[in-house]
Write a protein that binds this DNA or RNA. Sequence first.
RNA 1: GGAGGUGUCGCCUAGUCCGGUCUAUGGCGCCCGCCUGCUAAGCGGGUUUCGGGCUCAACCCCGAUCGCGGGUUCAAAUCCCGCCGCCUCCGCCA
Length: 427
Amino acid sequence: MIDLRQLRDDPERVRASQRARGADPGLVEAVLAADERRRASLQEFEKARAGQKARSREVSKAKGEEKQQLIAATRELAQRVKSLEAAADSAVEELGALARKLDNVVEDGAPAGGEDDYVVLREVGTRRDFDAEGFTPRDHLELGELLGAIDTERGAKVSGARFYYLTGAGARLELALLMCAVDTAVAHGFTPVITPTLVKPEVMAGTGFLGEHSDEIYRLEADDLYLVGTSEVALAGYHSGEIVDLSAGPLRYAGWSACYRREAGSYGKDTRGIIRVHQFHKVEMFSWCRVEEAHDEHLRLLGFEEEMLAKAGLPYRVIDVAAGDLGSSAARKYDCEAWVPTQGRFREVTSTSNCTTYQARRLDVRERDPHTPDGGNRHVATLNGTLATTRWIVAILENHQQQDGSVRVPEALRPYLGGIAVLPPVT
RNA sequence: GGAGGUGUCGCCUAGUCCGGUCUAUGGCGCCCGCCUGCUAAGCGGGUUUCGGGCUCAACCCCGAUCGCGGGUUCAAAUCCCGCCGCCUCCGCCA
C-alpha cells in the first residue's frame, strides 16, 4: 500500500513510477476519484450519525409518553444511518482495493523498463580461465555427485522433481555457509532469528507476495497457512501492529529459515542440479529504519552481501534491477549475480530491496514521529537482503573446483568445516 | 481435541451481573508549567489510536475505536451469535 497523502500531493510522481514499471498510469486517477468518493461518503455518514447520537441523548433524558414518541421518531433516522454507514464502508473498501493495485513508488535513479533493462553497476573478482588451466570444468551436479554432496535422484524419488538431498560434504558446506552468514550479520549488529516458515494469510499479504506472485506460494488448505518463500515474510510480520523505537538506529534481524517455492512458471528451466528447487535454506537480512535512512541502509545491506561473496571467493557482478522487474513492494532492488563457469553466465545469488513504507503500511508498523512535537506516529521503512542460500553451493563448487574433481574450500569457510581445505571426491 | 478462566487507552486497573452524561475511572509512566533549588519531594495542567472537517502547524469540532467480526436496540464496553489470542487443567502425540 502506498501513502495516499503522498499520492494526493504529488500524483505525477506516482504516474511516472507506474510508467517506469510498465504499469497503468491511469490507475492514479482511479484511486484519486475513489478517495474523493470515500471522503464524501464518510462525511455524509458522520453527519447523520452525529444527529442520531444527539437524538439518542434526548431519549435518555425524556420520560413516559414523550420518550415513546422520540423513539418512534428516531427509528427512521437509525435506518438511514445504517445504510449510509454501509455505503461509507463500501467506499472505503473500493478505495482500498484500487489502492492496493498500485505498486510501490520507484526510487529515483532506478532504471526504467523490464527484466532485461537492468544496469550492471560493477563486476568484481576474476573469472577463472579453465582453458589456460588445461581442463574442462565440471558442472555443480557432477561435482556434487563426485563429492557425495548432492543427491537429486533420491530427492526426486522421495519428494519429486526439484527436490534433493545434501549429504556429507554437501550438508556440511551448507551449514558452514549459513553459519558464516549468521556470524557476518551478527558482526554488523544484526540479531539472529530462526523464524516460523508457516504464516497466516494477512502476513503473507502484508509483505506483498499474494499479488502477481501468488502462484509461486505453497498454501496449506486445511489450516489456511502459507509456506514462506523467504524468512523476509516472517521477519516483516514480527513487528506488525507495533510502534517501534528507532531512535537508536535501525532494528536489524538476520533470519534463518527454510524457503519454499512452487516454481510454477519455470517448467523446463534449470532442471539440472540445485539451481532452482522447491526448498532451500537462506540467511536473510531485514532492517526496520526511518524513511530518511532507508537509502543509506539499502547500500549498507548491499555492502554486507558483497562482503559475503568475497568470503565465498566468488566472482560476481551487481545489477540495478529495472523498475518493471521489481516486486510490488520494492522501490529499488540490487541483485548480486555469481559467475557460473559451466553456464558461461551470471546467476542471481543475492537480492536486496528497499521497500520504503510499503510493507510497513500494510503490516501497520509505526514509530513516534521525531519531527512533530507531540509525537504523532508514522510508518517506518523496511529493507531486506540475502546473505547466503543453498544456491551459493552451485557457485562455490564450480568456481573452486580442481582438475581431479576435488573442491577447494574458501578460507573464510574453513573454520566452519573443521579446518578442511579441500573437499575430496569420494568415488 | 475437551473443560474452565480471561482479553478495557504505552503498562496496571474501575466499569460488564441489571444497556442510557461511559463524553471509559484511578494509578504508573511520559510531556508542559509552577514551587523548591542543584540527582528528592510537592502543586497545577495535558496524554488511546485512526479517520474526516483541512492545504503545513496549532486550536477546535465530528465520527469510529473497550481482542476481531456479525446481530438485537432509538441507544451496546455492557445483551446475543461466531471467531481469535493468552492462562490453567484433562486427553492424545513427538
